[in-house]
């Protein structure tokens, strides 16, 4: 269990660092979506199913969609 949790935390931090270094904003948005998704799994392990559902449906789905729509209006690459 603790190994699984440590692995998830490590993956989450890697995804956050990927969101930091990617110059392609679409890839950065997808990386932050991965951060939210892994955080929602961690919320489930912390016995917070309500928060896990909220994070999965809002943080991972809706926020990513809003970001992608806004990226369609602006430019994709960070100069």
């Amino acid at each position: 269990m603790i190994i699984l949790v440590s692995l998830l935390v490590l993956l989450m931090l890697c995804a956050a660092i990927a969101a930091l270094v990617f110059r392609d904003l679409l890839a950065a948005v997808i990386a932050s979506c991965v951060v939210s998704l892994l955080a929602s799994i961690l919320f489930y392990f912390l016995h917070a199913p309500d928060v896990a559902m909220a994070e999965a449906s809002i943080g991972a789905a809706l926020v990513t969609a809003i970001f992608v729509i806004a990226l369609g209006r602006t430019r994709r690459y960070e100069e």
């Binding site: 956050a16 939210s36 943080g59 990226l71």
Partner: peptide
């Protein structure tokens, strides 16, 4: 980049919630 800053805000938000 403003969009990148907003991505940072979202990551910060997730961290505080966790």
């Amino acid at each position: 980049n403003l969009i990148k800053i907003i991505i940072g805000l979202s990551i910060l938000d997730t961290g505080v919630n966790l």
